[in-house]
Write a protein that binds this DNA or RNA. Sequence first.
RNA 1: UCCCCGGUAGCUCAGUCGGUAGAGCAGUUGGCUGUUAACCAAUUGGUCGGGGGUUCGAGUCCCUCCCGGGGAGCCA
Length: 487
Amino acid sequence: MPRADYIVPESWLTFQTNLRYLACMNQEVITVKHAFTLPVGTPVVLRGWVRSRRDSKGITFIELNDGSRFKSMQLVVDNGVIADEILKQVTTGSSIAATGALVESPAKGQAVELKVSQIHVYGTADAASYPLQKKGHTLEFLREISHLRVRSNTFGAAFRVRNALTHSIHSFFQERDFIYVQTPIITTSDCEGAGQMFNVTSLNVNQPPRTPDGTVDWPQDFFGRPAYLTVSGQLEGEIFALAFSKVYTFGPTFRAENSNTPRHLAEFWMIEPEMAFYELEDNMRLAEEFLKYIIRYVLDHCREDLEFFNERIEKTVLSTLEHVAESNFGHITYTDAIGELKKAGKAWEFPVEWGNDLQTEHERFLSEEIFKKPVIVSDYPKDIKPFYMRVNEDDRTVRAMDVLVPRVGEIIGGSQREDRHDVLLQRLRASGLDEKAYWWYLDLRKFGSVPHSGFGLGLERIMMYLTGLKNIRDVIPFPRTPGNADF
RNA sequence: UCCCCGGUAGCUCAGUCGGUAGAGCAGUUGGCUGUUAACCAAUUGGUCGGGGGUUCGAGUCCCUCCCGGGGAGCCA
């Protein structure tokens, strides 16, 4: 809906006057996205960055993008309207404000365009050295210029999708009475069983204080003992679930693993819901509902961006997302999955044997060949899963679940938690963990313990699924990987 | 961390048997009255990833280090 107080009267001739008008009305600058909704004839000031410029004799076309949506506004400058010395500065990458009126476009490609009456150049961008060209760049090259890649089509689309995705995650849980809990980023509970952790210390790492036997004297450190960056908020999430019934965390997590793959980051974002009174079946139902909800949301709110990914990055993005949002996930137990994989009669690189963990090749076969859609594998052997997962009646398997999706692999890992104090204690000991460090975790099973479940979703993993981008470094603003923490 | 592939102009790449550096795009200049990755013409542009070695001679062969990509493990 056009709002009169957004509209700059055409008679207000100078750019400075327009600026003052906007300022005194205390209005935010109109976006390109908003401008496309205004009726033809509306005078506006648009500001943004020049994507490209095309000159013909007597007429200049400028693509102006401000990030508000994928499509740029085409600015049309007729001969003589803008002084040559100003127009010369309007190059790819420069930042400008353009005053003019929205008009119907006589040519194909856009319904409306801005007929320019004035241009103000905020900042020039030397054409010879500005790295972004009008033609395609490789994602690897753009990754080296993370401060500028966000101005490109691909990364503009990716981070608008990421924004919508994070919004939808909060909406989903808030609509269902989940409480958002911020679990700590610094933790002293080591060996959470999820890989190498980053040490956090205020000691001088070159000359740490040492005890007589030569080991580092941790009591002198900031927290009085070794501290780490969290690898998961799950254990603290359980504390809150046993008070607020349904909670979720949404924050960064850290792994110091030396993983060099397109699917791993040292710093990534994770969503971890935790629900009291939920058994594994409830957990699986929630995971499926959750994934469908956020996929539907992004389909409904980022159509233009997804169409770009579908056209340029991965031709199956739209069809798979539509399919997944409508169809039911597959479900198979680990034991049955082993049977299916054996029946497939394929020559596996890793042997298919009950008790072995599923390898990437097995997971892909399940989701891509057998089910051809997301599939939940549940009830894994207890020996290959962490201590906190609830042991089944058979005493051989635990109430674990992994959601596997075609193309990306494991996107969710979760379980029903062990809520029996004696069993948990036994599992802790069997895993060789220090039960004293988990005193509060055991306490939760001593005082008002209830069945409860939860799962973790990697934000960047679902981003890869939504966009079709094949390297996780392209779906997070500033990727941290072994040997790389630039920007 | 392991295995494989790659690094040549700002970008994407070619470079034969070891003989002294190429194209497209971008940039620049000019042309074109409505372009859409505009088009047409001309033109500038190089420490061939770093170091070492073999050779009369290395972008090319060897060693080594760095960086990037793919696969694996770990996982989300």
